[in-house]
Write a protein that binds this DNA or RNA. Structure first.
Lengths: 337, 337
DNA sequence: CTGAAAGCGCTTACAG
DNA sequence: CTGAAAGCGCTTACAG
């Protein structure tokens, strides 16, 4: 690999000048800069990451910590992060949190402490007290998505408001017997998102003066399969609901399929709404509250870059992530009885 | 951050000895090693990645190049890679190939040349002549998945054989009017996988003495939505097929849904088989040829580690990836006419 | 605006 | 088995 002194020799300057010309730090005359850039291009010179990092203390690399790589939400957020960081010339190193506690400990104690990254983006990870400490002690910016984690700068959608919006949409259509598919308690790891969504649901009902029916709540595991089974149980009852609000699009799709299997027409006999903005939503004509996961990743990337290189108004960016009701074909006025 | 000399001081040895004790390279007495390890643990010392890389030339970091982060196949393979590499203490830095040609050029010309990684895993990427050159010139091991790329060491499933197996399964059930949902030509970027699958399909038919019916082939885009539309067209004809072989599970699921919408029973009226081993397969009871994508990632990770640290029998590992017919509920004997 | 030189924090021949 | 010292390839005060 070509080194900096070859470039310096070819351009007729010192390595210090090459460094300044290529990094944009410090003063270099336009003519010199042009000569250095030409020499670097001709030789195909690229700064060595480790040498540059060691000397400067900057790695141009962001760590991204994810609980699952192969689940739609996380890989979509990750795609957003990657796209935004690449645009700024940053690399990303990936840290998949393992279910294995020993591996998880090692992640925080070893992997993250190698000084390989300038900052960290943590996607929907509930951190233990101790883990938050470890992150804080790293002394680098950390941005959480899906927080809020009191210890971290976090970007988050207001899950209570999201669930409320979805529920109000159903109420506005005249539904009264509205069921909710939420998460079983053991799934409430990611910042209690399921709990917040349930709260929003209950709030909206209460405001409309609709009493809660305990038989109209079912837990599931955020998958199509789980949503299918939960909907089956909900539709089993004699007084089955006219609408289902699922805490994720995948569960909502499962509910749509379960309804069809029962011979129920969606939306004529049963309305279904989800949350997410899942790519399958348009195919199933699913009404949903989109939370723009790819944009969440991009926002997190920008936030970390601002923390790293930005001006002082970093705090000016709002931590609230946008969401939006997307009306498609799975919700309609409640059937008259 | 604690440095190596603090550890050396505390253990009462030189930094050279600390380095040797912690890295496992070179001779250190058991007693000394224990003392060093204790000191390092007490201080929470972790080797600085950039200093170690610069001095040793080893980064303990693997680059993974993927065309899409947010598609099931790629994120699943990636999960396999990440799990296997983490077990060996390796980091992974992610390179998402952009559709933007300028960004793609920059990836090969700049990002990959920063000497940040010891090796590269390229997941199902069709490389241009020039790009293959750039990779080769990096002078580090490169493993391709989904090859074969003549220039790269590649792991690949035999797509012709996979498609043949799927088709033979249908023929064995007595089907003669078998349709194929493949890929439109512009989707044939990933190593001509769709073309190979189509070849396997045609081969199996030919061997069974079944003439090809041009009206029983439909292109799609590898999504559920695309498979749904393609199946609709196939089922429109007066002499519609009794079985559909889709070149991906997602398209097969689309076909199942299209059949249901037509009022066709699967598998009684129509058999459907896919390829992949998609997570949704079990929910839809989809018969498929599983290609174990997560295991593909793990295999690639092991291959790159072998190339990096392994003995000479690296070439001994077979580049053939396994596949297997998984019979579930969407295929059955052909209806008697 | 430019260069000489120290230094970033490790690793590894070399010598003992 | 262990240590002193050079060196990995850059960046950046410092001086001019």
């Amino acid at each position: 690999m070509v080194g900096i002194d070859e470039v310096a020799r070819r351009a007729g300057v010192s390595t210090a000048t090459v460094s300044r010309a290529l990094s944009g730090r410090g003063q270099v005359s336009a003519a010199t800069r042009a000569r250095v850039e030409d020499a670097a291009a001709a030789l195909g010179y690229v700064v060595s990451a480790s040498a540059s990092s060691l000397a400067s203390g900057r790695t141009r690399n962001i760590g991204v910590v994810v609980p699952y790589l192969d689940r739609w939400f996380f890989s979509t957020v990750l795609a957003g992060v990657a796209a935004a960081l690449a645009r700024h010339g940053y690399d990303i190193t990936l840290y998949a949190v393992s279910e294995d506690p020993a591996a998880r400990t090692q992640l925080f104690r070893t992997f993250l402490r190698r000084q390989r990254v300038d900052g960290i983006i943590a996607i929907s990870i509930e951190l233990g007290e101790h883990e938050s400490d470890e992150l804080a002690r790293l002394g680098i910016p950390v941005i959480g998505i899906g927080g809020p984690n009191a210890r971290l700068t976090s970007l988050a959608v207001d899950d209570v408001a999201v669930a409320r919006l979805a529920t109000e949409h159903l109420i506005g259509l005249g539904h009264r017997a509205i069921a909710h598919i939420g998460a079983s308690p053991e799934f409430d790891l990611d910042f209690h998102i399921p709990t917040h969504r349930r709260q929003g649901f209950e709030l909206a009902l209460a405001e409309a003066g609709i009493p809660m029916r305990p038989d109209l709540w079912e837990p599931a595991d955020f998958t199509i399969e789980g949503g299918f089974a939960a909907a089956q149980r909900l539709l089993d009852g004699s007084e089955h609901p006219t609408a289902i609000f699922a805490a994720s699009d995948e569960m909502a799709i499962g509910a749509v399929l379960a309804a069809r299997e029962r011979g129920l027409r969606v939306p004529e006999d049963l309305s279904v709404i989800g949350i997410d903005g899942h790519e399958l939503g348009s195919f199933f004509r699913l009404t949903t509250v989109d939370q723009f996961p790819k944009a969440q990743g991009e926002r997190a990337a920008e936030a970390i870059l601002t923390a790293l290189e930005g001006s002082e108004d970093a705090a000016a960016t709002t931590p609230d992530l946008p969401f939006e009701l997307v009306q498609r074909g799975t919700t309609a006025p409640a059937p008259s009885r």
